[in-house]
Design a protein around this nucleic acid. Structure first.
Length: 904
RNA sequence: GGGCGGUUAGCUCAGCUGGUUAGAGCGCCACGUUUACACCGUGGAUGUCGGGGGUUCGAAUCCCUCACCGCCCACCA
């Protein structure tokens, strides 16, 4: 074996050995009778490349999958990608522009979509390859894409069904319009961003009362062109007499009414608010209540569009003011704002302009200000679906881990609004609706079905149908992912076996986008939850706590860390830091530390190799005789139990920590050190057993660590497999360890004594500045028979680890010796002449003081009648024991101090 | 405005259902004998567990409150 583990050299080879063996295939012949376990991957965008969030998300999924696979389950980790409508369309459009090729509109829809597929074939596989580098044990043979024929069929079928159920409908109302992408987006794709702006106070002249104004406050003066009313609160004394009167809309010259509506808040602004139903969600509602017109004054790019607009012109007053307004045709909203304000200022209709900070809606992908815009769109009435999802979680048919995310889930679903699912894009699932000449929509799975329906509807076989141009929100197809990937609407064996899936692993940022919608669709379409558990992990954030994103440029590249430290080190780091409910701020030092851990284990294996620790056929760990071996078998069992429980409960950090401590602090630091004299000593039964035990423990470690560090452990398995009895198969398909029943209490006590003795001696040596190379004698004072026996047995080892020249047995501590107390008995290091008596006095005094304090604290507890009466018995007993121990120890320290005092 | 989370060693963080002598890694200091490992070994120092109150025999842990930090949600001119 080389001196260090070289991930780069090994990872690719191990990956292909897994692939060749079909190790990750669901439904392997050897698992036919096994229980199923399934996870669907949160499908990364086809445009994506692996970022830290993916690395965390997939590491955790892989840990679960490998763990369950080793526990014998038939595991399906379903991989795939999302077509990511907007993102992908943009990438291809940008590419066309860069290459100075014809743009999307010039190409036409069909050619453009074909071009996107081409792009997907060339560049869409990046993230899959990156996930493989991370070690993701997906069943790659089952990879799916949301625009595959099968998944597209599922999308159409669900759309038709929801339409038939009356849950999908078309409506003309205000939507969140993204002027950059020129498409509608859903509510949750809108992000409120705090913006420093202004509040303009505008004077609207009261009609027929020259010189009188009503002042409205607005953050969006440009929309005044579409004003149809001014609203005041019905109880607002200031404006009571104006209600029912008209005001003259400045510049436009239209008469608009003053209406009383409780929407108007007397506390806000001037208490009078301009009403623009076509460009504001609240105003839209006010308009409906008062039967007001909608006047759209903006175009799809949020530019002014009024020329020839009859709604706008109706009631407008021709003249120079109106001409100045009409000159704004085609002007962008920001420029139009300035222009409108300037025109108003010229006419002395701006009273004040205040600085004003407020939340402004932005498109989460485009980053531009969203415009409420009146269009026809398709909606899902999600309310009834949400009810089912809420009930399923309340009934614990699906459980969130950690539990507190359920509140977020409930709050959102309880207040859910219709979901706008149509997008004015080309890349995506085109809506399966066809329109007749009169605009009647026929929703059907295929054009033929739509035609049949049209023929029935019109009673005429000669109808021209045109398909709806729009595509569906990407999340519509993602919502079907847990069953569409399993073959639905066909009744496939996979669907039957793996749905509902076992666990969903995802970040909290897509609980609304994805988790809630999968719940709704799964329950509505299949009448069954899509997953039993939802493990919500933290986000990997940058050092300022901001979400990592490409646009912010604060992304750390996980593959860079894989290149430098290996996939195992990165994976282990992420797992070790994945404490529930806390964000992860990744530090390179930490990754380096776990790379060192990998090297440590590697070297332990190398040591085993150098010492002929080869696996032995028929070795039974429950049957080992040597105390040291009984001890490590017992400790391995405890580690196994700890790691298993932690993984079952999704406590990844504790599982990783448990494995780390066992490997480094027990196996390497103590077991191997204590085993050295045996391994390097004379041949015999003890040596044979120890060698076999070492080999066995390394195998156990490889298994326990495999979910976290699959490459290193698989490599070790292969190397160790080459020695000893024949072993076929991969570690990844071997069985998860179970604790060995060995009853190791006696061994624990004895090895505990050795460890404590050695540690105590080392500590004193260091404190007393005994040269590291110096061998000093140890005297056990008035040793009990048990100690005597132990000391005989461990003499050589203790001497070696504590650098002793020998161990003597004496009745009383030699004068001037340093005294240690181990397991209640005194051990003396006769260092007279070497040590500084004052220093030793100080050391003992310090310890004595600490013991006195401990005793006092325990006495305070035990003196408390309430404590005795109310604390559980074992807690009280424990305090008594501790007191006795401290007391005994204190007596011995005091004696040692006295002896020193006698020396002067 | 509502909700969630955080505040523990110089740094990054564990500490699950209240009972430890409050831990880890990194960093720091000292020393390095021993052919697994210097990506190492041995020893060591550092904490009023954000402040204040409460519940309890007992609180880093539960409750209230305040402060600061972060995130999510919300239609307020």
């Amino acid at each position: 074996m080389e001196k260090t583990f070289e991930p780069a050299a090994v990872e690719a080879r191990i990956s292909s050995s897994w692939e060749e063996a079909g190790a990750f295939r669901a439904g392997r012949p050897d698992r036919r009778a096994a229980a199923p376990y399934s996870i669907v991957i949160p499908p990364p965008n086809v445009t994506g490349s692996l970022h830290m969030g993916h690395a965390l998300n997939n590491t955790l999924q892989d840990i679960l999958c490998r763990f369950e696979r080793m526990r014998g389950k038939d595991v399906l980790w379903q991989p795939g990608m999302d077509h990511a409508g907007i993102a992908t369309q943009m990438v291809v459009e940008r590419q066309l522009a860069e290459r100075q090729q014809p743009g999307r509109r010039e190409m036409g829809r069909e050619a453009f979509v074909a071009r996107v597929w081409e792009w997907k074939a060339e560049s869409g596989g990046t993230i899959g390859r990156q996930l493989r580098r991370l070690g993701a044990s997906c069943d790659w043979s089952r990879e799916r894409f949301t625009m595959d024929e099968g998944l597209s069929r599922a999308v159409r079928k669900v759309f038709v069904q929801l339409h038939r159920d009356g849950l999908i409908y078309k409506d003309k109302r205000l939507v969140n319009w993204d002027p950059r992408f020129q498409t509608a987006i859903s509510d949750i794709e809108v992000q409120q961003v705090e913006v420093k702006g202004h509040l303009w106070h505008l004077r609207y002249p009261v009609a027929d009362e020259p010189g009188r104004f009503i002042v409205v406050a607005t953050t969006r003066p440009e929309t005044m062109l579409g004003d149809v009313a001014v609203a005041v609160h019905p109880d607002d004394e200031r404006y009571r007499d104006l209600v029912g009167k008209d005001v003259l809309l400045p510049l436009v010259g239209r008469r608009i009414p003053v209406v009383a509506d409780s929407y108007s808040d007397p506390e806000k602004g001037t208490g009078a608010v301009k009403i623009t139903p076509a460009h504001d969600f609240n105003d839209f509602e006010v308009g409906k209540r008062h039967g007001l017109r909608l006047i759209n004054v903006l175009g799809p790019e949020a530019e002014v569009r009024i020329v020839g607009n009859e709604d706008f012109l109706r009631g407008a007053t021709p003249g120079p003011d109106l001409d100045a307004v009409l000159a704004l045709e085609g002007v962008d909203r920001a420029k139009a704002r300035k222009a409108v304000v300037a025109l108003l200022e010229e006419r002395e209709l701006v009273e004040t302009i205040e600085p004003h900070t407020h939340m402004v809606p932005h498109g989460d992908r485009s980053g531009v200000v969203i415009e409420p815009w009146l269009t026809d769109q398709w909606y899902v009435n999600v309310k009834p679906l949400a009810e089912k999802a809420l009930k399923a979680v309340r009934d614990e048919r699906t459980v969130f881990i950690p539990r507190n995310w359920e509140k977020t889930f409930f709050d959102w679903l309880e207040n859910i609004e219709p979901w706008c699912i149509s997008r004015q894009l080309w890349w995506g699932h085109q809506i399966p609706a066809w329109y007749g000449p009169d605009g009647h929509a026929f929703v059907a799975g295929t054009e033929e079905e739509a035609r049949d329906a049209a023929i029935r509807h019109y009673g005429n076989s000669d109808v021209t149908l045109t398909r709806d141009e729009d595509v569906l929100d990407t999340w519509f197809s993602s919502a079907l992912w847990p069953f569409s990937t399993l073959g639905w609407p066909d009744e496939t064996p996979e669907l039957k076996r793996f749905y509902p899936t076992s666990t969903l692993v995802t970040g909290f940022d897509i609980i609304f986008f994805w988790v809630a919608r999968m719940m709704m669709m799964g329950l509505h379409i299949l009448d069954e939850v899509p997953f039993r558990n939802v493990y919500i992990h933290a986000l990997v954030r940058d050092e300022r706590g901001a979400k990592m994103s490409k646009s912010k440029g604060n992304v750390i590249d996980p593959l860079d860390l894989v290149d430098r430290y290996g996939a195992d080190a990165l994976r282990f780091t992420l797992a070790a830091m994945a404490a529930q409910g806390r964000d992860i701020k990744l530090s390179t030092q930490r990754v380096e530390g776990y790379r060192n851990f990998a090297t440590k284990l590697w070297n332990a294996a190398r040591f085993a190799e150098m010492n002929g620790c080869v696996r032995v056929a028929g070795f039974d760990p429950a049957d080992v005789k040597e105390t040291l071996n009984r001890w490590i078998v017992s400790a391995a069992g405890r580690a196994t139990a700890e790691i298993t429980t932690a993984l079952e409960e999704f406590r990844f950090n504790e599982a990783a920590g448990g494995a780390y401590r066992f490997v480094w602090n027990l196996f390497c630091d103590w077991y191997l050190e204590l085993a050295k004299p045996v391994l390097q000593g004379e041949d015999g039964l003890a040596k044979d057993e120890t060698r076999a035990t070492v080999a066995w423990v390394i195998d156990e470690i490889a298994k326990l660590l495999h979910p976290f560090m699959p490459f290193l452990t698989e490599e070790l398995w292969a190397i160790k497999g080459a020695e000893g009895p024949a072993r076929d198969g991969l570690l990844t398909l071997s069985s998860w360890p179970v604790p060995v029943a060995i009853g190791g209490e006696a061994a624990e006590a004895e090895i505990g004594w050795v460890i404590e003795l050695v540690s105590a001696i080392r500590s004193v040596r260091s404190e007393m500045n005994v040269p590291a190379g110096a061998q000093i004698p140890l005297a056990l004072v008035a040793a009990s028979p048990q100690t005597l026996e132990r000391a005989q047995r461990w003499r050589e080892i203790v001497a070696r680890l504590a650098r002793l020249s020998g161990i003597d047995f004496v009745d009383a501590a030699p004068a001037g010796a340093v005294q240690l107390i181990v397991y209640g008995e005194v051990a003396a290091l006769p260092l007279a002449g070497i040590i500084d008596l004052d220093a030793e006095r100080a050391r003992l005094k310090k310890e004595a003081e600490k013991l006195v304090a401990d005793i006092a604290r325990i006495d305070a507890k035990l003196g408390n009648a309430d404590f005795i009466a109310r604390a559980p018995e074992e807690i009280v007993d424990e305090q008594h024991e501790r007191r006795a121990e401290a007391e005994a120890r204190h007596r011995q320290i005091a004696a040692a101090l006295e002896q020193l005092a006698a020396l002067g």
